[in-house]
Design a protein around this nucleic acid. Structure first.
Lengths: 345, 345
DNA sequence: TTGTACGCGTTATCAA
DNA sequence: TTGATAACGCGTACAA
């Protein structure tokens, strides 16, 4: 390995000067600078990142923590791919690298490893749930001063760095849309209440319902676990109450598509016999038949902002805005239109 | 930060002994060991990973290189999610961490940064294409001795560590299946020939075709770019030649689904008017309507084996097997069945 | 504008 | 079985 020392010798300067050249520090004679760069080029010198981290006491890595679930596809790949890409873009702009950490469900408490070992300067945490264990782990992290930012998850009562989407408003608009299409009996298939965004959607749903002068009917609320299968299973329950249901708002696209499939097997076609709107506006929404209306969530941008926010605190810059909430947007497709296929009804 | 020195003082041993305890090296009195561990616990000592990397001259990181494509979803999220999970599992078992690197299309040549800066001990490279630029970058890496492993991509004539799937056999079986269902006019929608797996599929397709005594008809071969849109566009071309086509083998699920959608708009329904089989057996295959037959590729396992193989060479253990090829499996669903809906035809 | 010299927290070698 | 101590490659305060 070529070291600074060898470059210094060849360029006939001190090692400190080599460092200065590579870090662009201090005033220096252009001639010196050029000699150093020339020598570095000749020798093929590149600073050793690990030694740099060691000396700077900073790793230059942003940790990205995400739940590890080998065969359990509760989260869609789309969701993580978008957020990861967003983080990746921001990180690259700031000269950082991303250290991925897949957290098994049973070592929830082990956020520690990453920071203790100093392998990362900060973390972005994805797929967190609001449980006692998580709260205490995060509080611990906070006390110990490792900067972290949560994406798409809030913890009521605690003051963490969080980048979220406005799921309340998104859901409100989605249900408004169904109301505007003339539907009145609107069911809601939610995910686990351990996710703050599930609760947010519930609030949006209730707000729109109440505003329309409709009662909150608990028999219209169902719970799945964000998997397609759970949507498929919910279809059976909904079918039981089919005279009570004209439209369904599902808390993500995967469940919505499971729903579509389950009801189709019973002869009910979305966009003809009933309406469905999902959430995430994932690729799957465009792939489904009929194309699925959905709430577009800016996952890419959320990842980007989370990375930016948490890296800002590392730089020691004044605290960034603590809680960010990005807007969502309703995308209408065939699955939630009324009248289109209903010419005869 | 608590350092080894403080632990040594509290435990009344030398710093070297503390290191020995934490690395399980050399013989030592149980009593000493316990004193050290106790002291470490009291102080909350954890070895500094960066200092360790520095001293060991090993980062403990496995680099994962993947093409960066913000809005260009040429690869499916499913594909990468599976491979990443596989890598993640293996890496975790070996006490490594994953450093993600999103490579922009224009810095193809910059595999170097990662290894020059010594941030990784080895790399797994995803989504590589067979271009001159790539070949030379990889050769360069090889010369410089950075261990790397390619996933799902071979370079004919070069001797790299590669973990691939048996796409030739998979495609052969897929086309055999279509033949068995009674189809004779079988079109093939391939992806870019820059990917070795595209070429493999072509070979499998040709092999099955020839074996069945059918001619190789170039007008039955189409090329997309693995996106849904390109499948959708191919539908138009295929529709032109619709009297020449009874079934289509598409090189991935996304194009297959685009095909389904494009042809459906013209009134052609898969599994009734024609057959389609895709490749990857991604989530989308189960979401589509009708459910899409597909070739299952063990992406998770491929990621895992790639990580294992390349980390083995780091340990300095004798070279692992250079080229691995994992089996594929044809999954039959409704899109490729004949007769099911064809009662009347 | 440049050089000197120390420190960072380990690992690993050599003695004892 | 344990202790001293020299690297490791770089950042940086201070001196010149």
């Amino acid at each position: 390995m070529v070291t600074r020392k060898e470059v210094a010798e060849l360029a006939k300067v001190s090692e400190a000067t080599v460092s200065r050249v590579f870090n662009g520090l201090g005033p220096m004679k252009p001639a010196t600078k050029e000699r150093v760069l020339e020598a570095a080029k000749v020798l093929g010198y590149h600073p050793n990142a690990i030694a740099q981290s060691f000396a700077r006491r900073r790793s230059g890595n942003l940790g990205v923590v995400l739940p590890y679930m080998p065969k359990v596809h509760l989260f869609s790949a789309y969701y993580f791919a978008e957020i990861l890409s967003g983080i990746g873009e921001q990180v690259r702009e700031q000269g950082y690298d991303m250290l991925l950490s897949l957290l098994a469900p049973d070592d929830d408490l082990d956020y520690g490893r990453l920071y203790r070992s100093q392998k990362v300067d900060a973390c972005v945490i994805l797929g967190a749930r609001d449980t006692e264990a998580q709260r205490s782990s995060l509080l611990q992290l906070q006390e110990q001063g490792l900067p972290f930012c949560l994406v798409n998850q809030r913890f009521e009562g605690l003051s963490f760095l969080e980048v979220d989407a406005d799921h309340v408003e998104g859901s409100y608009q989605a249900v408004r849309h169904l109301l505007d299409e003339g539907y009145r009996k609107i069911a809601f298939l939610n995910g686990s209440p351990q996710y703050s965004n599930s609760m947010d959607r519930l609030h949006g749903y209730q707000k729109a319902t109440l505003e329309a002068g409709l009662p909150i009917d608990l028999s219209l609320q169902f719970e799945g676990n964000y998997s397609r299968t759970s949507g498929y299973e919910a279809a059976a329950q909904i079918w039981e109450n089919r005279d009570q249901v004209e439209a369904i708002f599902a808390a993500n696209d995967r469940m919505a598509i499971g729903l579509l499939q389950g009801l189709r097997e019973r002869g009910w076609i979305a966009g003809r016999d009933f309406a469905v709107i999902g959430c995430d506006d994932s690729d799957a929404a465009k792939l489904s038949d009929p194309p699925l209306s959905s709430i577009k969530v800016p996952f890419f941008e959320m990842g980007k902002q989370a990375a930016r926010a948490v890296l800002a605190t590392v730089g020691g810059a004044g605290e960034a805005q603590l809680q960010v909430k990005l807007p969502t947007e309703v995308k209408i497709r065939q699955s939630s239109k009324s009248g289109v296929w209903r010419v005869g009804s």
